[in-house]
Design a protein around this nucleic acid. Structure first.
Lengths: 226, 226
DNA sequence: CTCAAAAATGCTGCATACAAAATGCAAAAG
DNA sequence: CTTTTGCATTTTGTATGCAGCATTTTTGAG
């Protein structure tokens, strides 16, 4: 599975990385969908999009097929691709599954993670707190996602991490809309405090519980704005 | 040359071409990988494969990108695609995740399924039993998979069903190898009996438990042959 | 004026052509 | 004898062209 490239500031020491056009296109299109630049239900015109992105139709079509497998776009025979539209039920269904996956991840991570890895999550957490203090919503949001991704990766279970990433990616567009008020934001931060505490104590049961609760609350926060 | 053999309902071999070529190609390549016709780690030569399948490189490449997103093949920059090779740990990891998903499905299905849907699973189950009696391993195997897929679909949770299908698809190739002896086969059939009983009683807890147990045993059966 | 049928337009689906990169091999240098 | 370098072949990556289908517009009859 390819990394969601534009997630965290490039803490990774980037190799010379002549990134293939394919990966770039996939990431670019994914961002355009998540940020609403490509509206749900709208057709993705190959010529037009290709000109806009400065590539020909061939690599663009390949990227679209890739995203179709990811579930972000839908392929309609003889009519090309349309941006997939998610209903409220779809979102709820995805959250239910993501909840199950993150609960599993919480349990596993407390066993499999190294101390260094936990320390790394702690650093991201602290940085996120600073963004909360500074009311830097966008960056807070990205670090928030990063923490969930990191916890899934702490399991050292590639399948679990990729599934979590896939679902989270699909839900990004939704969460991108829902802006909760200060009270709910504070509650979310408090839950994240619980998470890092449980993780550092390697209390899998507690971590699993708070992760699940966090997601259910996330649903409560966004369900009326879909 | 192997039959399409993608799923159970269609044993047709007619190239009626009602479905788009893309879908056909994806299914065809997936089968070739699952059945080992394309060995793990081997490169997928575009010209050669295209000639073999009677299509040009363009739609073939699109299908390969799709499968890459599914995780069945790996894209190496400037070197094309290779069939993904799974280690024993990979398989175990996938089974752990699949177990979690099927347990969730078992719980939900008992609430959301209609009586007709449950009856449908019962019919597949009975047919599978006949294949067991007749020692028709291949068909038994396909119906077995179909039951797990059906149970996931009974949840009416698209995200859950698709994730389950994705993981099961990746594991197909593995299970394709592991041929258990008569005793273990009988045990597996007994577990399936438990499943259908729990489902018809709408006992989510019991269904969930037996589904999880079934998968752990499946791991026990194949773990030494990887 | 309305509606239906046919032409026209635009887009997708697939194939082919071209460009860039990698691999293999052979010959020459150390 | 080993290693390196440069050429040739193979293979991937990207662009373009053509045919078919869908939708829309136009035209003709009622």
């Amino acid at each position: 599975m390819s990394e969601p490239s534009s997630d965290l500031p490039t803490s990774n020491s980037g190799p010379i990385q002549r990134t293939a056009l394919h990966d770039t296109l996939v990431g670019r299109l994914r961002d355009m969908i998540i940020e609403g630049e490509l509206a749900p239900g709208s057709r993705m015109h190959e010529s037009q999009l290709g000109e806009q992105l400065g590539v020909s139709r061939t690599p663009l079509r390949e990227a679209i097929k890739y995203l179709a497998s990811e579930g972000l776009v839908e392929l309609v025979p003889s009519r090309g691709a349309v941006v997939k539209r998610f209903t409220g039920k779809d979102v709820h269904d995805m959250i239910i599954v993501l909840k199950s996956l993150e609960e599993l991840a919480g349990n596993l991570a407390c066993v499999t993670a190294t101390d260094q890895e936990i320390a790394r999550v702690r650093r991201i957490h602290d940085e996120m707190l600073q963004c909360y203090e500074a009311k830097d919503r966008l960056r807070y949001y990205k670090l928030n996602q990063a923490i969930h991704t990191e916890i899934s990766q702490l399991t050292h279970n590639e399948a679990l991490a990729s599934m979590q990433a896939l679902l989270q990616s699909r839900l990004k567009r939704i969460r991108f809309i829902g802006h909760e008020g200060p009270d709910k934001w504070a509650a979310a931060v408090a839950e994240h405090e619980e998470m890092i505490t449980a993780l550092e104590a390697r209390d899998g049961k507690a971590l699993s519980e708070v992760l699940g609760r966090h997601l259910l609350k996330a649903w409560e926060r966004v369900k009326d704005s879909i």
